[in-house]
């Protein structure tokens, strides 16, 4: 058993961070890890910035990750990766979906969506950029981008030994099992 790992999933309300983190947590639990998670519900879900925190290891205390303590940030959206970057350890890694979701201030031209974010991030930290939306879309449903990213994360963490497809089956409606299983497999192939 290894020391505690901290995974921060960040994105925009509606992107499915909670489903991805639920699958991750259930798989980890089944394989004997202690797991703690934290998520925020309610107001922020109306298109706001959201985060889900997962910590696992032999014995986990805090469900909350502090600044500078995340081993991996999985950003479902580029700008969110930057917003949360100070939570990352110096030698941590960012897995980032290259999609841009403009906030209202950008939609109404009050602010600009920042340019070259991926380049900016990769200057200071190891970055794995994934076009998860495109991969999911090629499988027939853009919504499965969350499970593509989960696949990338699992590969990065070296946790392929866990029967993730079984866990996915338990967590998504029957008609989406095949889509999500394929999305997960595609995610594994990214790195």
């Amino acid at each position: 058993m290894q020391e505690v790992k901290s995974i921060l999933m960040v994105g925009v309300g509606g992107q499915g961070t909670i489903l991805a983190s639920n699958v991750l947590a259930e798989g980890l639990l089944k394989n004997g890890y202690d797991v703690k998670m934290s998520e925020v519900h309610g107001m922020s879900q109306r298109g706001g910035s959201v985060n889900t925190q997962i910590r696992f290891g032999e014995k986990v205390y805090s469900p909350v990750i502090e600044v500078g303590a995340a081993d991996v940030i999985v950003a479902f959206e580029k700008m969110e990766a930057v917003r949360w970057l100070n939570y990352l350890k110096k030698d941590g890694v960012v897995i980032v979906n290259t999609v841009e979701i403009p906030p209202l201030s950008v939609l109404i031209s009050k602010e600009e969506y920042p340019k070259n974010l991926i380049e900016e991030i990769s200057k200071s930290v190891k970055t794995i950029a994934v076009d998860a939306d495109k991969i999911a879309e090629s499988l027939g449903n853009i919504k499965a981008q969350n499970i593509v990213l989960l696949g990338v994360l699992v590969k990065y963490l070296g946790l392929q030994g866990i029967d993730w497809e079984e866990v996915i089956k338990n967590n998504v409606p029957q008609k989406f099992v095949e889509l999500n299983t394929n999305a997960f497999r595609k995610g594994l192939e990214v790195i």
Binding site: V12, G13, R46, V82, L85, P103, S105, E112, L117
Partner: peptide, 14 residues
């Protein structure tokens, strides 16, 4: 911890 200079716009709920 990591820090970057880029400021990103806020994303309040709507």
């Amino acid at each position: 911890h990591i820090s970057v200079d880029t400021k990103v716009p806020g994303r309040p709920p709507m």
